[in-house]
């Protein structure tokens, strides 16, 4: 059963089309990710799903409620973790959580109880009375998540919730999200960190320049590029080996299988070990020097690179 249905969603700011006809759906209890580089249109899509931006075109339904027609009704069943640390810094963690809880009609003992529970989940019980301004970035991010799960939403929408934090806090957040998902909460997660997406999400939508360019499970996406590994060779100059390497890769001489950018030669191949020595000979025959060679197993970065010709972090 679909808990979220997004159909032909579009958003323009003046002449700029930020989101172009995006369609996808998410099942109840699923964890779905929108992956894409900065400026791809992930946050704009999320802002439309949460009812913050009215879309220019298309439709959105959450738990069967039309978000465009009844945003306040739809917002009751969602929890939103914004990209910014949307908290009141002069107030304590507990005060912040209580305030956001009240916005979802929680009050009295029920509110106190749920705040205690959430503080436990985010691991900040012992810092509950401290002002948020005294917290580290990671701790603030945890309170930011806590404020979104107080009312036990059916769908938790997280917009890049781990930006700019230390690995320890990131791990804590990822584990928390995983746990919430295992308990039945539907997760919609945007990020440009493929490792997070690979760890958390069952299905992934790849978004670039406002368009959903691929959507499926990690396995499906890998298969879409032939499950090929990447050979990444760092060069001292970009050289002119493109055609020769193409002919070496018999049967795979497609433009997207070989990328040369910023002195990095990337070759996609199912059996990288088999062609590596020949590839190195080809590259170095005109005196080009190799500074490093790396073989990367197929992953989301490979998929994105293959689809767009660009790295996710560009």
């Amino acid at each position: 059963m679909n808990i979220l249905n997004v159909q032909e969603l579009g958003k323009s700011f003046g002449k700029f089309e930020a989101v172009k006809g995006v369609s996808f759906s998410v099942e109840k209890g699923e964890s779905f990710s929108l992956l894409g580089p900065n400026g791809a249109g992930k946050s704009t899509t999320i802002n439309m799903i949460t009812g913050l931006y009215p879309p220019t075109s298309g439709s959105i339904q959450i738990t069967g409620v039309d978000v465009i027609k009844n945003p306040k009704q739809a917002q009751k069943s969602i929890g939103v973790v914004p990209q910014e640390i949307a908290l009141y810094e002069t107030l304590s963690a507990r005060e912040n959580l209580k305030f956001w809880g009240r916005m979802y009609d929680l009050s009295g003992n029920a509110l106190e109880k749920v705040v205690d529970e959430v503080l436990e989940i985010i691991g900040l019980t012992d810092r509950a009375k401290d002002k948020v301004s005294t917290f580290s970035g990671g701790m603030k991010r945890r309170v930011n998540i806590g404020a979104a799960i107080l009312h036990k939403p059916e769908v938790l929408i997280m917009d890049e919730p781990t930006v700019g934090i230390d690995p320890q806090s990131r791990n804590h957040i990822l584990e928390t999200v995983k746990r919430l998902n295992n308990e039945g909460m539907t997760i919609i997660y945007t990020s440009h960190y493929m490792e997070e997406v690979e760890y958390l999400c069952e299905r992934i939508g790849i978004i670039d320049h406002g368009e959903l360019i691929a959507c499926g499970t990690l396995r499906e996406l890998r298969e879409s590029i032939g499950d090929r590994s990447r050979i990444i060779i760092s060069l001292d100059n970009e050289g002119s080996h493109h055609l020769e390497i193409s002919s070496l890769l018999e049967g795979l001489a497609v433009e997207k299988d070989i990328l040369i950018k910023d002195k990095l030669l990337t070759v996609f191949h199912k059996e990288p070990q088999a062609i590596l020595s020949e590839l190195i000979q080809l590259v170095t025959k005109d005196g080009t020097k190799i500074t490093s060679v790396e073989i990367v197993e197929p992953n989301l970065e490979s998929v994105f690179l293959h689809l767009t010709g660009r790295s996710l972090r560009n």
């Binding site: 802002n47 917002q75 969602i78 939103v80 949307a86």
Partner: peptide, 14 residues
């Protein structure tokens, strides 16, 4: 700028 305004807007508060 800080995001609390946007966050308020996506709560059920009118």
């Amino acid at each position: 700028i800080g995001g609390t305004w946007g966050r308020l807007m996506v709560t059920p508060a009118s």
